[in-house]
Each structure stands twice: as C-alpha cells, then as structure tokens.
Amino acid sequence: METMIDIKDLSFEYEEGAKTIDHISFKVPKGSYTTILGHNGSGKSTIAKLIIGLLAAKSGTIKVGDLVLSLDTLDDVRRLVGIVFQNPDNQFIGSTVRDDIAFGLENLCVPHDQMEDMIHEYAKKVNMLDFLDHEPTKLSGGQKQRVAIAGILAMHPSIMILDEATSMLDPRGRLEINELVRELNKEEGMTILSITHDIEEAAKSDNVVLLNDGHIVNQGKPEDVLCDVKQIASLQLDVPFAYKISSVLKKQGFHIDPTINQEKLVKALCQLHSKM
C-alpha cells in the first residue's frame, strides 16, 4: 500500500536534553484513517506541528507523499496537508462563513465567477450551507469545526490532520465531526491522521499509533493495540466501551468474543437473544 506520511527516527526537544519526541518511526498509508493516541503531554500535538513544519525536527526525516520535508519543500508539503486545530477560532480568517471558505479558494487563484458555486459545494459537503452569511465565531463548537474543515477542503489537500479537533466539543458535536471525517475518508478517499485521546475514535480507525512520553509503545490495528488492557490502563487511558461489555459477558459465560467494535457487539447480542 502506498504511504502518504513516512516518519523515520524522528526526535524533537523544546529544551536542550529533554526530548519531547524520541526517535519515533511510523507510516500513514494512503487513504487510511490513522490515529495517534495518548494522554495529555505524550507528544501527540508536537508530531502534527512537525509534519506541517511549524516546528523543526532535531533529527530524523518526515516524508509527505514524494516530498522529504525541508525548507525547500515546505510550501509544497503544506499544499498536500490541511490541519484542523483544537480551537477553530484560531483558524478563522473571514467575517462570515462564506468569506472563510472563499479564503482558501482565493489562495488557489480560483476566478471569482466560479467561486460562489464552489463555496456552496464545500459548505454543503459539511452541512453548513444555511450558515454562509453567519459570523463563524458565533456558531456552536461543532459548527465551527465544520467551517474549518470546509475551508481546508477548498484547498484540495491529500491529507487532513486533526489535532485534538473534537476535544473541546460536547458528545453530540464530537460524534458529528467524527462521522463527517469518516465520510471524507471512506467516500472521498482522503488520508486522515487524527491526534486524539478519544479511545472510541481510535477504535474505529484503520491504524493506531500509541504514544507515551514521546515514545511509540505500540502500533497496529485497533483490535490488536486497544485490547491490551494492562498497557492501555498503564497509560491512563480507557479501553473501548464495547470491549468492556463483551469481556464481562464472556467472563459470565456468554458465548461472545471480546471486541472493540460496537456494531459486532450489537450483532452478537442480537444473535444471543434470538437463541434464548
């Protein structure tokens, strides 16, 4: 499978001698939904900033597509990558939703006579078509993130990075944004790299990179990484809800295999109920 992000032996330190990122290596396959999971202070957000060149690595390499990140390739790399930050207010440029989406199109030198149709296209894609004339800062948290994502989509990136993009949202807003991002991944084929401590989001991703104190302690498929209960607990994270329930039922003698997949759990429970 083609690789979109290739991190090799990457290290970074904010203070001399205190590594925030310590010789990590991982790959993000093209078209995948990959999560970097860890508690606060594990170095997750630093990785996002390194990938888009907001920070300079102390050592190691970052390759995005066919480009090795450097001062010479920085602009080209940033054309490939769009990033959604934790606080969307920090990303707003325009005084209205329309203006904010238009900003990305203007950067692409899209002719003004074509711009309005494209603004409608991206606003509709994130279900914000009815809010084009609203001021972004007065929207709800979930709506703000939708506008931020629309502005990024207007730039036509191949990769979207979400840096704790749902951590400030309520449960409903978090669910809506996660569903939107999964739709972009599955239907549009966009490569997603999500920096998160949301175990349920990680459980639904294609790949998980588990981070602790700047080190990768595990990586692989969610069903392999997230079922290591002792390791997950040692990192002050919680195991997926479906795994908790299915494991308890298994211990109580029910014929249910432990799973992190909620849909599989529901299906197993329905089958179990039909046999009773």
Rank of each mutant, 00 (worst) to 15 (best):
L162W: 10
T137F: 15
G151I: 10
L71S: 04
L80H: 11
I83K: 10
A150K: 02
L108A: 13
D130R: 12
S95N: 10
I83R: 09
V84T: 11
I119M: 00
I159W: 05
H120P: 03
R172W: 09
S140W: 04
Q91H: 02
N107S: 12
D76Y: 13
L74V: 12
P157E: 08
P88A: 06
Q91M: 08
F131I: 09
I101M: 05
V77S: 01
L67H: 05
H156T: 12
L80M: 15
I62F: 05
S95R: 11
A148I: 03
A165E: 05
T73S: 15
K124P: 10
T73M: 03
V68M: 13
S167P: 07
C109N: 14
L105H: 00
Q91G: 06
I93D: 00
G104F: 00
A154C: 04
V68E: 14
D100M: 12
L132Y: 03
A148P: 08
H112A: 14
G65V: 11
L74P: 01
T166F: 04
S140R: 08
L105T: 06
F92A: 09
M118V: 00
F131R: 14
I152N: 05
L129S: 11
N90L: 11
Q91F: 02
H156F: 12
E106D: 12
I161V: 09
I62P: 03
K124S: 15
S167N: 13
D133F: 00
I93C: 05
G82K: 00
R146M: 06
I152A: 07
D100V: 11
L108Q: 03
D76F: 09
R98C: 07
L162D: 06
D170P: 12
G173P: 05
Q114D: 11
I119A: 10
Q86R: 08
M168H: 01
K125L: 07
N90D: 13
M160R: 04
F92P: 00
V126H: 08
D89H: 04
S158M: 15
Y122R: 00
Q145W: 00
D113K: 02
P171T: 10
G82N: 08
L80E: 13
L80N: 12
A102H: 04
D113I: 02
V97S: 06
V110Y: 09
V110A: 07
S158R: 14
K138A: 11
M160F: 13
L139W: 03
G82S: 08
D99L: 07
A123I: 02
I62Y: 02
S95V: 03
D133V: 00
F85V: 03
E164P: 02
A150E: 06
F92C: 05
E116I: 07
E164T: 10
H134R: 15
K63I: 13
Q143A: 09
G173V: 09
M168I: 06
E106C: 09
A148S: 07
G142P: 02
D117F: 01
